[in-house]
């Protein structure tokens, strides 16, 4: 279990780096759009669709990492009043539900990608399937990290709890 946790930790770190690079890339692309439109008097045709696609990547990857690190918004008032055993059981139920939704992201995201693979994304000239690759990729990580939480709990290792992190954004 320790080795698995190490591997998923690395995976989460990698996903966070990809998402971070995505955010910086988005910043650069939109900055370039501003420079082209206002200073160079011409337009980047592809800047909007490209940055929106990158945003999809960083949202779904970031959301998956959030499961492992426990920084999602949640409401755990009921859990405060329950005994420890019941609490752990409900956490596991919740993690399995999230894993199920992640599986849906993979399965149905793939279905959407297949359906639109013959279309072209305007201005980028790539297959419409690329629109749905981020949701599939994010879904895979959601499943992995949720199951890891269940496994860690079963093995008696600590898991980050949703709402633990005080540094929540409004």
């Amino acid at each position: 279990m320790k080795n698995v946790a190490l591997a998923t930790g690395l995976l989460a770190r990698l996903a966070l780096w990809i998402a971070g690079i995505g955010l910086v890339l988005m910043t650069v692309i939109i900055a370039a759009q501003v420079v082209f439109r206002y200073l160079l008097n011409s337009s980047l045709i592809w800047s909007e669709p490209a940055s929106v696609m990158i945003m999809g990547w960083f949202i779904f990857l970031g959301a998956a990492v959030g499961i492992r690190e426990g920084y999602h918004l949640s409401f755990d008032i009921l859990l405060y009043v329950l005994p420890e055993k019941a609490k752990l059981f409900l956490h596991t139920v919740s993690d399995l539900v999230v894993a199920g939704f992640g599986a849906g992201m993979v399965w149905f995201g793939w279905e959407l990608a297949e359906k639109t693979s013959g279309n072209m994304v305007p201005s980028l000239g790539i297959s419409g399937a690329f629109d749905f690759i981020p949701i599939v990729g994010g879904g895979v990580l959601v499943v992995l990290f949720s199951i890891e939480r269940v496994a860690r709990r079963a093995a008696g290792l600590p898991t980050a709890r949703f709402g633990d992190d005080a540094d929540i954004e409004a």
Binding site: N41, S43, I45, E48, P122
Partner: peptide, 19 residues
Amino acid sequence: MQSDMFVDMVSALGANATP
């Protein structure tokens, strides 16, 4: 609009297309 054909049309008329 964000559409390749619109961009090509406006360019062919000698103007700049801005989606």
